[in-house]
Structures are given as C-alpha cells and as structure tokens.
Design a protein around this nucleic acid. Structure first.
Lengths: 140, 140
DNA sequence: CCAACTGTACTATGTTGCACAGTACAGTTG
DNA sequence: CAACTGTACTGTGCAACATAGTACAGTTGG
C-alpha cells in the first residue's frame, strides 16, 4: 500500500485516497481479499486526521470496492459490482467530454490528443490493449 | 450566447460560465472581436448574482480569452496567446490521466475508451482529424 | 450635456465542504 | 483482558462560493 497526498491540491485529501485505492485495485496491486491498512495507520502515515481516512474508506465501502468486517478490518471486495453497460458508457462519455474540452482550450489537435493518450497508457502500463499483436510484442 | 447553469453541480457557477465561454470560442460560435453580453444581463438571464458573472469574466480576461474595453464591454480576444508546446503537452497529460483514472474505475477497456473518444469527436463535430482520408470519406 | 449603460472594486453575510481534535462504543483477536 | 479493528458522534476553524448592496470611472446614444 503506497499512498501519497498532495496537500496544496484542489481535490480534497479523502478523495485522493479514494482514487488511489481504486486505481491500485484496478491495476491488480491490491487483489480481492487483501487487507487494507487500518484507518489509524494510514492517518499516521499520511500525517492526516483519522476521520479523513475513515471518510475515504467509508466511501469505498459504499461504492462496493471494499468490504468491512466489523472489528477485523477492511478488505478488497471479491467482485466489484459491475456497472451496467449503459452506465459505464455514460460516465465514460462525460469524462471524454471533459478531456476534449481541455484539449480544445489548450489548442491541441486530435492527433496530439491521441498521442498523449497512447503515450500515457504505454508509460503507465495501464489499460493495455488486449489484441494479440501487442501481447506477442511484449513477449518477444 | 447560450449559457446554462447546473445549480446542483459540484463545480461552481462561475467556473461553469468560464468553461462554456471557452468552449464556444473554441467551436467558433464566438468569433474574435464579438461582444459579450454584459455582466448584469448574464446575471439576470441566469438568475445569478452579478458578482459571480464578473468573477467568471475576470478570469477569462486574465487568461487572455477576452479583452476588456473599459466602459464599453468585453470582447473575444483577437488571438489567444498560444501555449508553449511543453505546457500544452503537460496540461494534456494531466487531463488524460484523469480520463484514464475514470475509465479504470468504471472498468472500461482501452477499446471502449477509444470508441467513446471517437464517437464523441464524431458526434460533436469537434477536434476533427486533419488527414485527407477522413476528409474524402465525408465528401463521398 | 446627461442619462443609461459598461466593467470593476469594495464590504458584509450566510452556507457549505473540508480537515481537524477529541471522545466513545461495539466487535475481534492473541 | 489488553490491544487492536471500524464507526459514529460533537465541536471548531478555515476557505471557497454565492449572495446583496454600494460605489466609481469610462463610454455612448439621444
């Protein structure tokens, strides 16, 4: 569990924690059933109030990413409740709209946008393409 | 000038105005030199405080999207000061990071993301590709 | 000239979200 | 039983947001 905070950021600390935990689960760094560090441990680690961590964990439980076993701790949920296809497309669309709006406002072209997306996915080794070509290339 | 607000939204009203004006300039709905409706007119239209509109306009002036002619009004700037290539790439990257994070959290694949991006650019007729193939396909 | 408009700059008030501190309690575990 | 777990309170401080009202300098059409 590696967590970090950006104190000066406009996004609240509890939200940063939520996003990072979600990202680590998505990347497989946290597997189903894995225990999470306690509220108080994270709070000490990040030099942050315990309530702030509890707020983040609570949101992750409500969203189904974590399960709470009272008295024992928090664990990564076995299966995150899959979003419906329509809901997934809807949220993807609003996220895309935001990105395109930013791209327009900085005066970037479609090609620059595609390049940036490709470069980030490549570098961060995330959201990899599932085609065989890519897989073979990595094995070779 | 078509503006709308989403009162329940987490993004502040003044920021919604900023984004919408920027988008309209980018789309060409507002051309360089075009006058903008007065602070008080927009405030009445949106049923919003004049200070809130002034705050949005002020930010647009500071960012170089609008120019202020004291006593006359606000106008779309002739040429928005082009961002440096590195700055453009930097801002594009953080925007891409946000999109990818959302894509991961909703469990979307890379292909779904690409499709959503393509579909939005196609539908909104925005950030069009500049290659000849695409152009020919549309003419045909 | 002047009334009516423009942007801009104040002061002040109320609400909301965020992070903090402290306390408390029920459940689990070595 | 002591030490840990999550959770739930109360209360405080701070900053951002939106509101209301007032004021002032510059421009412009009648």
């Amino acid at each position: 569990m590696r967590l970090r905070t950006t104190p000066g950021s406009a996004v609240p600390i509890y939200r940063q924690i939520v996003e990072q935990v979600r990202a680590q689960i998505a990347r497989g760094e946290l597997a189903a059933g894995d225990p999470l560090p306690s509220v108080r441990a994270v709070a000490e680690e990040l030099v942050v109030n315990a309530n702030t961590v509890a707020k983040a964990y609570g949101e992750l439980v409500r969203s189904g990413d974590l399960v709470s076993e009272p008295g024992r701790g928090l664990f990564v949920a076995e299966k995150k409740p899959a979003l419906s296809a329509v809901e997934r497309r809807r949220r993807l669309r609003v996220a895309v709209e935001r990105l395109v709006a930013e791209a327009i406002s900085v005066g970037a072209s479609r090609e620059e946008l595609d390049d940036a997306l490709e470069a980030y996915c490549e570098h961060a080794d995330v959201l990899r393409r599932a085609d065989r070509d890519d897989h073979d290339r990595r094995i070779a």
